[in-house]
């Protein structure tokens, strides 16, 4: 897989908090979907399959963020944002189609709207990460110490 991995790059600092919250949602959504599918699938197959889909998205996002798979994380969080917006809107417009709650129902109201805020924070974090390379990874144009081009040398006055 040509995935560019900066080990832990997206899982350090504030990213570690993000991974923790994503892990909680992966577990919560996963457990909820499992119970729904196992005990009463016939009642609301669409809502419960959506629950399972949401759980899968959270699992992928958690693993990608934890392992520094930036592109996979970006894709998963994009799907997550679209999911919470679409399902949130549909669940308010057509309540009959969503007889039982999913994590994304009513924009995640049952979970303190965290499902709505989380993908936004995730995308902001990934953008921030893309701008500041992980320590140890030389940024493009950076030269080894002592070979600095004229004009880029450190200010000797500091």
């Amino acid at each position: 897989m040509p995935e560019r991995t900066a080990p832990g790059g997206t899982a350090t600092g504030p990213g570690r908090v993000l991974v923790a919250v994503y892990a909680v949602f992966a577990l919560a959504a996963g457990a909820r979907a499992t119970v729904q599918l196992a005990t009463r699938f016939d009642e609301a197959p669409v809502a419960y399959l959506l629950s399972a889909f949401a759980a899968a998205v959270y699992v992928v996002a958690t693993v990608a963020l934890a392992r520094g798979g930036r592109r996979v994380a970006l894709a998963a969080i994009g799907v997550e944002l679209a999911g919470v917006l679409v399902v949130g809107t549909l669940s308010l417009l057509d309540r009959a189609a969503f007889p039982d709650e999913t994590v994304w129902s009513a924009f995640g109201r049952g979970y303190g709207f965290v499902p709505l805020v989380l993908p936004v924070l995730g995308l902001l974090w990934l953008r921030h990460q893309a701008r500041t390379p992980a320590p140890g990874t030389p940024a493009p144009g950076t030269h080894a110490p002592g070979t600095q081009a004229p004009g880029t040398a450190e200010d000797p006055g500091r």
Binding site: T12, G13, P14, R16, V17, V19, A20, V21, A23, V24
Partner: peptide, 21 residues
Amino acid sequence: AGVLWSRTEPSRWAGTVLAVA
């Protein structure tokens, strides 16, 4: 899980991880 995940964080964000847990 919260303690394990925050103990591996060398920055000030370890506290927030624990707070989330």
